[in-house]
Amino acid sequence: MSTPLDTLFIKTRSENRAALIGYLPAGFPTQEGCIAALTAMVEGGVDAVEIGYPYSDPVMDGPVIQAAAETSLRNGTGAREVMQTLTAISQIAPSVLMTYWNPIERYGVDAFLAHVKRNGGSGVITPDLTVEESGAWIEASTTHETNRIYVVAPSTSPERLQLVTGATSGFVYAASLMGVTGTRTAISSSAQELVARIRAVTDLPIAVGLGVSTPEQVREVAQYADGVIVGSAFIRLLQESATLTEGIGRVRELAQQLSSGLQRS
């Protein structure tokens, strides 16, 4: 099996650079606005897109993404809108969904992945699904040839890194620090240590997320990781802009700035 995401990492590795991955929750700031902003991100230089499934109880997210998810849910975003966004964006860039587990369970594990695949998705990031609870998920993702992307943290033990990366495909999502999503002024030193520990147990690409927002931070992370994930910084631009057009312009600009720092020296 090879998804568009797998192909992307083969390409960026051969180019000796990291991939830039941009995140927005579906339906934020509006259904059409989200698709337009993600499109601008890709035009600006984002290599792959992570589409969030907004959820009522996002325990891994800081205030910025919480607020965006609330806006999106008030807009009436559900599975249909998430899949619509995936269909639109997967035509221009490798795309994955990121979702808490309950919406998947409610939708039906097999049906969910069948629809991700049919709509051009490469895979799904599942931040609160443990490997122990993944029986049906592993089976269905194998059937539907989609990437299973798990999140590991600085506190993850060597034994669990082996276990979790053994179940992972696409890339390993390395949380840069102990905490929730949101911009930080500096990248924690724990990020580089964690990436080194993951490298010791797997050849899979590794993308670093949580707290990455500036071109300097992207440049720093790109030196040792295969991917850099940016979410809250894009959302903040959309929240702070007076109009959607202005917000989309600023999103494109940030994507351009961030993508200039991906090359490894």
Binding site: V59, M60, W101, P127, D128, L129, T130, E132, E133, Y150, V151, V152, A153, P154, S155, T156, S157, R160, V164, A175, M178
Partner: peptide, 12 residues
Amino acid sequence: GGRFVPEALIGA
């Protein structure tokens, strides 16, 4: 039952 939590909490 079970555990549906971020990997960050598994150690604790």
